[in-house]
Amino acid sequence: MAILRLVSPVRSPEPVARVLPGVLVQFLDRASVAVACTRDRDLVPRIHYVSGWQLDADQKSIWCFIPKEFTPGLQESLDDNRQFALTVEHIGPHETYQFKGTGVSLRPATDHDAAVVARCRGRFASALIALQAKLAGKSAVLERYILDPAVAFRFAVREIYLQTPGPGAGTLLAKLEEPA
């Protein structure tokens, strides 16, 4: 397990990167579960389960593929404040990062998005089975828990935080340059 520690908690200022650090790009490709959050104008938070995720070609924004059951609030967020947070975990080693940023766009999900979700869904089931032997043979049940995507929400990453359980959780690891 390679947990990213770009900076110590006491070092400042945090490095400003142009794109997502390579270790995090690799992490996104092996992570097994993700959840996101927006908030309304009254500062009430709302959770959006994320069935799949993919780094954009620009290497600094992330696509979140979200099932229709968790779409309420997404458009309102884009219209009102655009604040977005995404937490991604590699189940098993508990390696977890939170990506915070600004909502950019929302569109219906495509077949390509569904293919990405299928890969994430497979990693989710495999990770749980590896963690609990009693789940062996229940791959279909686990995969069904990851709902089909209805929309794709893209957000520009602004900050990345370590969230692996432990005293280092919450440490700011890196900032990304604001869009020009």
Partner: peptide
């Protein structure tokens, strides 16, 4: 379990807790 909160400055936060 998933918990979402929001700072007084309007920055949302989402965590996975045991």
């Amino acid at each position: 379990v998933v918990i979402a909160t929001c700072s007084k400055d309007g920055i949302p936060n989402v965590s996975i807790v045991s």
